[in-house]
Design a protein around this nucleic acid. Structure first.
Lengths: 200, 200
DNA sequence: GTCTATATGCAGATAGAC
DNA sequence: GTCTATCTGCATATAGAC
C-alpha cells in the first residue's frame, strides 16, 4: 500500500466522521501514522485532499446503485431488491449519509460538478413502471416520487439517528439497531402496499 | 427590540445557514450591525451563543408539532394534517432541517440534554392507531415506523435538496419547487394507501 | 519521501477607553 | 453598553535539513 493510499484511507475516515470543516489535518496525519507536512507534499492543500476523498467515495458508490437497478426485471422485484441492498450498503458505511448530506449543502456546486459524469438509468425504471401501470397492476406514480420516497425512508433514519434514538428509544442503541433491522421488511411492505391497485 | 434579541436573531440566521463550525463571530456581528466584542459581552463565548440559539429554535418548534398531533381525532385525519402542516412549516424555514441534522450528529449529547424536557404525545397516537387496527380499518403497523416513514418522506427531500435537484431536475430550482408542492398530496395518498386494509 | 521547525493567517476572546 | 485595539491560540501551509 502506497503512502498516498494510506493518506486517502485515513482522510476518508476522518472526513466522513467529522466533515470537511470539523476535520483537522493533524488528526488525519495521526490516523495515517505520518507527518502533517507529508499531507501537503502529496495533496498540496486540505481542500485538494478533501476533493480527492469525495471523488473516490462517489466512484465506489455509484456502480453499486447502478447494479441494483439493472438486475431487477419488474417493479415489485425492483422495490424489494433496491430497499434490501440499500439498507445493507448503509450498514457497512453508517456515517456516509450524514457526511454526504452535510457536504452537498455546504458546497452544492462541488457536488454538481462531481455528479455531472454518471447518470442513473432512470429510463429503464420508468418503462418498468409504465408497463405495470398500463397493465393495471399498480397505481399511477411518478418515478421521481417513488424513488425519493424509498430513499427517504431508508436514509433519513440513519441521518437523524441521534434524534430518533433519543425521542423514540430513550437513547438505547440496541433498540435503535433492532428498529433498523425491522425496517427492511416494514418499508418494503409499506411501499408495495402503497403502489398496488386494490381489488374491490 | 433589545440588543440581545437582535444578536440572537442574527446568530440564528447565520448558524442555521452555516452551522456552528462554519459560522464566524465576525459574520454574526456584521449581520447584527454591531461589534464582535459585544457578542462576547452578552454571551461570553460562541458555544454559549450557539446553545442559546439552539434552545430558542427548539422552543419555537416543539409546540407546533404538539399542536398538529393534538388536533386530529383519527389516524386518517392525523396523517393528512400532519403531512400538510409539516410541509407548510418547512416552507417557512427551509434551512432548518439540514441545520438540525448536522448539529445533532456533531454533538448528540447536547441534543439529548435539550430534548429531555418535553416529550411528544405518542400515547395518544398509539391509541388512535390501535383502535383503527382492531376495528379492521388499517393494517397493523408500529407507530414508530409510521412516524419515521412520514417524517422521512417530508424532510429528506429538503435535506438532500442539492443532490435531488441535480440528479432529477438538472439543477432547476423551479422544477424542484413544483416537485415539493406535489408531494403534499402524493405523500398523503402514499401513506394512506400503505396502511389501509384492502377489501377483497 | 519524510521529517522538524517555522511562518502566516485567522478566529475567538479580552482589556480598556468612552 | 458599545466601541477600538490587542492578545492568544490554533490550523493550514511552507522552508529546509536529512
Amino acid at each position: 500500500m502506497t503512502t498516498e493510499e494510506i493518506i486517502l484511507q485515513a482522510a476518508s475516515k476522518i472526513f466522513i466522521l467529522k466533515g470537511m470543516e470539523g476535520s483537522r489535518m493533524q488528526e488525519i496525519a495521526d490516523e495515517a501514522g505520518i507527518n502533517k507536512a507529508l499531507l501537503h507534499y502529496y495533496f498540496r492543500s486540505k481542500e485538494n485532499l478533501f476533493d480527492r476523498v469525495f471523488m473516490e467515495i462517489k466512484n465506489r458508490l455509484i456502480p453499486k446503485v447502478h447494479l441494483s437497478i439493472e438486475k431487477s426485471d419488474g417493479i415489485r422485484a425492483f422495490v424489494t431488491m433496491f430497499i434490501s441492498e440499500y439498507i445493507d450498503l448503509i450498514k457497512e458505511i453508517p456515517y456516509l449519509p450524514q457526511f454526504f448530506i452535510h457536504e452537498i449543502n455546504r458546497d452544492p456546486s462541488k457536488i454538481i460538478k462531481i455528479l455531472q459524469s454518471g447518470e442513473l438509468p432512470f429510463t429503464k425504471m420508468q418503462s418498468m413502471i409504465d408497463a405495470d401501470i398500463s397493465a393495471g397492476k399498480i397505481k399511477p406514480i411518478k418515478i421521481e416520487h417513488l424513488m425519493v420516497n424509498m430513499v427517504s425512508m431508508i436514509l433519513f433514519p440513519i441521518v437523524a439517528r441521534p434524534i430518533i434514538e433519543s425521542i423514540l428509544f430513550g437513547n438505547d442503541p440496541q433498540q435503535f439497531s433492532l428498529f433498523l433491522d425491522e425496517r427492511k421488511s416494514v418499508v418494503t411492505d409499506f411501499v408495495l402496499q402503497a403502489i398496488e391497485i386494490k381489488n374491490i
